[in-house]
C-alpha cells in the first residue's frame, strides 16, 4: 500500500469536482422541500439530465448547450411530478418513486445509441493570476465554470430564501400551506415553480456527471447520487450553506475511497465502494439522534384548497 501516491492538492481539487453533481441536485431539492414538497424523484431527474446533456453535447459539439438542454429536460420531467402531486393530489412519496423509475427507463432508452461515445467536455476556466497561485491555485482556481456556478447557485438560493419577499412566500407555503393560502398566496403555483427549479438543478447535476465527471454515458450511471442528494438535504437541516458542507463532505468520502482503492489499501473493496452509502446512513442516524429536526412544517403533505 502506498499512501504517498495520494496527493492532497489533487485530492481537494477532485473533491470539488466530485461534489458538484450532488451539490447541484441537493440545492435544488432544498428549495423544493422548503416549499413543502418532498420530491423523491431526484435520481430520475439527474439521470435524465445526464443522458439528455450528453446526447445534446455530442450532437452539437457544444457542452454549454448540453447543460442547458439537460436543465430544461429534467425541469419538464419534474413538472409531471408537479402536476400529479399538486393538481391531481397524488401521494408525493409514491409519485417521486415513480419519477425515479420513469427517469431510469427513459434515460436508458435515449442513451442506448450513445454508449461508449466521447463527448466534448468543459474547458478549465482561466482565472488569470489566481490559477497560477501555488497550491491554492491548483486546488481551488483550476476548475471548469460549472463548479463555480454551483457555488453561485448556493449563494443565490441562500439570498433568495433569506432576504427576498418571494423567498418568504415560498417558506410560508412550506411551513404552513393553509396559512399561506389564507393570506392569499398561490400555494400550488409557488410549489410548481419550486419543483421546476429543483428539476433544472438536478438536470445540471446529472449533466455534470456525464459531461465532466465521468465523462461518458453508461446506463444507471448516477448510481444513487440523487438519493445521496436527498440525504444531504436532511443532513443540512434544509439550509443552503450546510448543503454545501454536506455535499463537499460526501464528495470527499467518494474521492478518498477511490484513492484508497487505487492505492491498494488493505481494506476490502466491497467495504470501500459501499462507504459513501454507509457514511450517508451514519450521518442520517447521528443527525436524527441529535433530534435536530428543522423540517418544513408542511413537508410532504398534500394541499387542497377547499373553498
Amino acid at each position: 500500500m502506498d499512501f504517498g501516491s495520494i496527493n492532497p492538492v489533487l485530492l481537494v481539487a477532485s473533491v470539488m469536482v466530485s461534489a458538484t453533481p450532488i451539490l447541484l441536485a441537493a440545492i435544488g431539492e432544498t428549495v423544493v422541500e422548503r416549499s413543502g414538497v418532498l420530491n423523491l424523484g431526484v435520481e430520475g431527474m439527474m439521470i435524465t439530465g445526464a443522458v439528455v446533456g450528453f446526447a445534446v453535447a455530442v450532437n452539437t459539439g457544444d457542452p454549454a448547450s448540453g447543460f442547458a438542454a439537460a436543465a430544461l429536460a429534467s425541469a419538464v420531467l419534474s413538472l409531471t411530478f408537479g402536476v400529479l402531486t399538486q393538481i391531481f393530489l397524488s401521494n408525493q412519496v409514491a409519485t417521486g418513486l415513480g419519477l425515479t423509475l420513469v427517469g431510469l427507463g427513459l434515460s436508458s432508452l435515449i442513451g442506448k445509441p450513445y454508449e461508449g461515445m466521447k463527448s466534448p467536455t468543459l474547458p478549465k476556466l482561466d482565472l488569470g493570476p489566481l490559477s497560477d497561485l501555488p497550491v491554492v491555485g491548483r486546488m481551488l482556481f483550476s476548475h471548469d465554470i460549472m463548479v463555480y456556478l454551483a457555488l453561485g447557485i448556493v449563494a443565490l438560493v441562500w439570498m433568495f430564501l433569506k432576504f427576498t419577499r418571494a423567498g418568504l412566500i415560498l417558506r410560508a407555503a412550506g411551513e404552513n400551506h393553509d396559512a399561506a393560502h389564507a393570506l392569499g398566496y398561490h400555494v400550488v403555483r409557488v410549489r410548481l415553480m419550486a419543483i421546476f427549479f429543483g428539476g433544472a438543478c438536478a438536470g445540471l447535476g446529472g449533466a455534470y456527471l456525464s459531461l465532466v465527471r465521468v465523462p461518458q454515458w453508461t446506463e444507471g450511471m448516477t448510481a444513487g447520487a440523487g438519493w445521496i442528494a436527498l440525504a444531504i438535504v436532511v443532513f443540512a437541516s434544509w439550509r443552503p450553506w450546510r448543503v454545501l458542507v454536506g455535499a463537499y463532505l460526501f464528495g470527499g468520502v467518494t474521492v478518498l475511497q477511490l484513492n484508497l482503492q487505487a492505492a491498494g489499501a488493505d481494506v476490502p473493496v466491497a467495504l470501500l465502494s459501499a462507504s459513501p452509502y454507509l457514511v450517508t446512513i451514519l450521518v442520517l442516524v447521528i443527525i436524527s439522534a441529535r433530534g435536530a429536526h428543522a423540517a418544513p412544517g408542511s413537508l410532504g403533505r398534500p394541499f387542497h384548497a377547499s373553498q
Partner: peptide
C-alpha cells in the same frame, strides 16, 4: 423494441395510476 422501453412502460403505468387515483 429496446429493453428499456419496457421499464419506461412500467413506470408510466404507476404514473397514470397515481394520476387517475384522484
Amino acid at each position: 423494441v429496446p429493453g428499456a422501453s419496457i421499464q419506461l412502460f412500467q413506470g408510466m403505468l404507476l404514473f397514470f395510476l397515481l394520476g387517475v387515483d384522484v
